[in-house]
Nucleic acid binder design. Structure first.
Length: 262
DNA sequence: TATGTCAAAGCCATTACGTCA
DNA sequence: TCTGACGTAATGGCTTTGACA
């Protein structure tokens, strides 16, 4: 029985029940990366690329190369922010990024402390969309994403690592649920078959009694058309007279009840 | 051609931290 | 204010793989 479990999102549907991600998805053969490869076809953000350049501008970080990719293709998308007032959305980004930068600097100062930096919703959404496109990143993709989100490449790498782990965990839960249902179903089937077997056995053991009804009602074997005869002992006891025996009696040889009946 | 070494990348288990009820 | 549960970022160790001598 093949358990073709392609429930939910799996990295490799052909792997059947296994939920393991391909161990090595090294992208050495990947085509040259373009930014649009990293982005969802339907961005969840008004303009996924907009906030970061905005942010860089607000922070006076124009020297930070945000446009890490081929300018010819995505230049428009990465163009400077529009002239409208900075939205609260962008301000939130600004504040979040301030926190990140402060966190980074703090970590640099006392490297022993492990500061956990919470990603903003925007960053998470961006990463999530990228994950839908590629569950693994090649170094270039990682760098591009890191620059886009103002994160360290290591952070992007870790996020994808943890995201793959979460996916696998969820898939495992789904698989467990499915197997649980399979198990329950098989148990029911097993019970049903056991019951059926018991009934058949009971029927088989009852049959001789069926065959041992009073002689008047069971005088002839349907297969051989022989009537019940007396045993030799009975014959001698009755002076060789043929008698009908009312006592239970199993015929031997061809008169085996099972042989005759079936 | 076979083999050992090394670096890179991924997975896994675990820790540590932030948030929330 | 405290606390425990939970989600998740981060870490360290191990394995696998490909390149290279």
């Amino acid at each position: 029985m093949e358990l073709a479990l392609s429930l939910g999102h799996t990295n490799n549907a052909s792997m059947g029940f296994s939920v393991a991600l391909p161990h090595h998805t090294r992208a050495s053969s990947d085509p040259p990366l373009q930014l649009h490869h990293l982005l969802p076809s339907t961005p969840v953000l008004p303009s996924p690329r907009l906030p970061i350049p905005c942010l860089s501008h607000a922070l006076g970080m124009e020297d930070t190369p945000v446009r890490a990719l081929d300018d010819t293709e995505d230049g428009a998308a990465l163009s400077s922010p529009n002239s409208s007032a900075v939205s609260s959305f962008q301000m939130e980004l600004y504040r979040n990024s301030r926190k990140f930068f402060e966190g980074d600097s703090e970590e640099d100062e006392n490297g022993s402390t492990r500061k956990k930096l919470r990603l903003s919703k925007t960053q998470s959404a961006f990463l999530e969309d990228s994950f839908k496109e590629h569950t693994t990143l090649n170094p270039k993709q990682k760098l591009v994403l890191a620059k886009e989100l103002n994160l360290r490449p290591r952070q992007v790498e870790v996020w994808f690592q943890n995201r793959r782990a979460r996916t696998k965990l969820k898939q495992t839960e789904v698989d467990c649920e499915y197997l649980k249902r399979c198990c329950e179903s098989l148990s029911e089937e097993n019970k049903r078959l056991q019951k059926e077997l018991q009934e058949l056995r009971a029927f088989k053991t009852c049959e001789p009694f069926f065959m041992q009804l009073p002689a008047t009602t069971l005088t002839m074997c349907p297969s051989c058309e022989r009537v019940a005869t007396t045993t030799s002992a009975a014959a001698s006891a009755t002076n060789n007279d043929s008698v009908y025996l009312n006592k239970p009696r199993i015929l031997s040889g061809p008169h085996d009840p099972l042989e005759c009946f079936f």
